[in-house]
Structures are given as structure tokens and as C-alpha cells.
Design a protein around this nucleic acid. Structure first.
Lengths: 143, 143
DNA sequence: TTCTTAATGAGAATGATTCGCATTTGCATT
DNA sequence: AATGCAAATGCGAATCATTCTCATTAAGAA
């Protein structure tokens, strides 16, 4: 199966029309790995020669997030939201406070904690947000 | 010791002048328990008859955060930042997606996880952000 | 009481995001 | 392939949270 077929399927499943702009956003997110801001995405798309406007980037990301195609996050002390493709394997992020890069970490330590919350506080847990921040191995060296 | 003495001490320790506005913000945060946005804080202060402007609220919260007196957080899908008094006991928050209330939970399940990250990924952990969201016990009933 | 400097108020400026509306484009149906 | 219509896009204006500027006020040391 070609990449473009994969994207077409994602869009069809989400009941979204297949447009050049949507394909291009899926492709960039797919290649990018780490979360990107709407503006970065816009710049990358322009650089690739894709005709698109910033508001369309926002609109597409919104639609994607509604359909569960992407996940939006807000990192502390960063004023813009970032987006990445939804990933089956639940994972979290390490943020380097020096170089501002984002590293994925697979796995999640919260199952027991959430069970405890459900039992002790009678709260139905639907999800969580977790980011860990600090100094990545490259930035550690430099100091 | 009176409450106002407590606030005076906090300000002195932070090397900040004691002003009516700063006392008032400390008092509201102290009574409020849960995190509040700058605007909510401003509204509450006005309601109490405190003369203050919104920019001052932001400035004071900024200064407080710099001194470690308050903690600022960004909850997902909420565009404004929220602030609460720094609390010695490390804790996290439960967000009810229905009533939007915030509940504190003491304790933290991340020690082992962070140790693992430090070892496996050679990343120096400085802190983390964790919020759990779902339906609180009151909203659960209503449905 | 005076002086210096930090803090405040009011509103303008900024930056991220959303909205409104005219135009274009997928795509289901002839 | 041509048609029609709803969905998607582009552009700029609008909005929202937050920060900045600068003139005025008030803490607190001397």
C-alpha cells in the first residue's frame, strides 16, 4: 500500500474529504515524528510548495483532532499548542528545557495510580496528560 | 500569627514590597484552594472591592511565580493559564470535564518512572506535569 | 518628612487562534 | 464528461489571553 493510500484511508475513516492540503499535513506530521506547532507546520508546507493558508492549517488540525487523527498538547511555558499524529501505543514526552526538543518515551506508569483515584475518590478517569521536563543528553554535555 | 503576617512574611522572603494588591491576591489564592485564572482572580478581587487592574494581576502572578510563591499550569483545552499557591506536598490535579472543577490529589506516582528515564535515556529530569481528567463524583450522578 | 525606586493603572501592542464570507474544489449523481 | 451542492479553502478581520509602555503613585529606607 502506498503512503497516499494510507492517508486517503485515514481521511475516509474520519469522513473528511481528500484535499491536497490534508494529504500534505498528514505527510508532514507522519515524517516529523515529534509534535509541531501550527505555524511550524505552515512554514514546512510552504517550503514544500504546498499552497495553503495558516487558517486552513488550524482548521485542518482542529478537524483532525476532533476525529482523533491528531493529538494536541500544550507544553508548560510554551504559548502555542503542538500537534502530532495519534499513536496507538500510549506514550509520553520528555521536553528539553534547553534546546526545546521533544522526545517520545514509550510506556506509561499511571495505571495503578488511576485505579487508586477511581476507588478512593470516586472519579471516573478518562485520560491524562503527562510531560517530563529537564535536560537532554546533548544539552547536558554542553554545560 | 495573623493571616496578614503570614502574607507579609511570604512577600518579605520573596523580596517583594508589601502592597494591598499583593496581600489581596495571596488571600484569594489561599482561600480558593483550587487553581484560578488571572481573570477569575481579577473578578474576585473587584468583587471584594480591591482596587486593581488586570495587568497588575498578571504582573503580580508573574512575580510570584518567579519567586516560587505560586505555580502556573496550563490545562489541556483551556486556553488560559491557571495559578495556585505553591504547596509543599507535591500533588496533582483531577479535572472534571463536565463541571470543569479541579480537585487536588496528594501523592505522586512518578518517582520510579523518572529514575528509569534518567537511566535509560540519559536525561536529567527536572520536573513534570501531570493532570488526570474524567468525570467527578457529582457529575457522574447527574447522567 | 524626604527621597529613591518599585509597583500600579490604563490602555496600546502582540501573538496565537478563530471567525466570516466570498470563492473554489471534491465527489456523488446524472 | 458535465452538473450541482455541500464541504473546504484563502484572506483578512476579529477575538482572546497576555505583555508592554509610560505616566503616576506609594513603600520603605534614611
Amino acid at each position: 500500500m502506498k503512503q497516499s493510500d494510507k492517508y486517503a484511508e485515514i481521511l475516509k475513516k474520519g469522513d473528511l474529504r481528500a484535499t491536497k492540503q490534508r494529504y500534505a499535513i498528514l505527510e508532514v506530521l507522519d515524517c516529523n515524528g515529534a509534535p509541531v506547532s501550527a505555524e511550524d507546520l505552515y512554514i514546512q508546507l510552504k517550503r514544500k510548495g504546498i499552497p495553503i493558508s495558516l487558517s486552513t492549517v488550524y482548521r485542518i488540525l482542529d478537524a483532525f483532532q476532533e476525529k482523533g487523527i491528531v493529538v494536541r498538547s500544550n507544553f508548560p511555558d510554551v504559548s502555542k499548542a503542538v500537534y502530532e499524529l495519534f499513536c496507538e501505543e500510549h506514550h509520553h514526552h520528555l521536553l528539553c528545557v534547553d534546546c526545546r526538543r521533544v522526545f517520545p518515551v514509550e510506556g506509561c506508569p499511571l495505571e495503578d495510580y488511576e485505579r487508586l483515584i477511581e476507588e478512593r475518590l470516586n472519579f471516573t478517569v478518562k485520560g491524562h496528560n503527562l510531560e517530563v521536563y529537564g535536560h537532554c543528553k546533548d544539552c547536558k554535555k554542553k554545560t
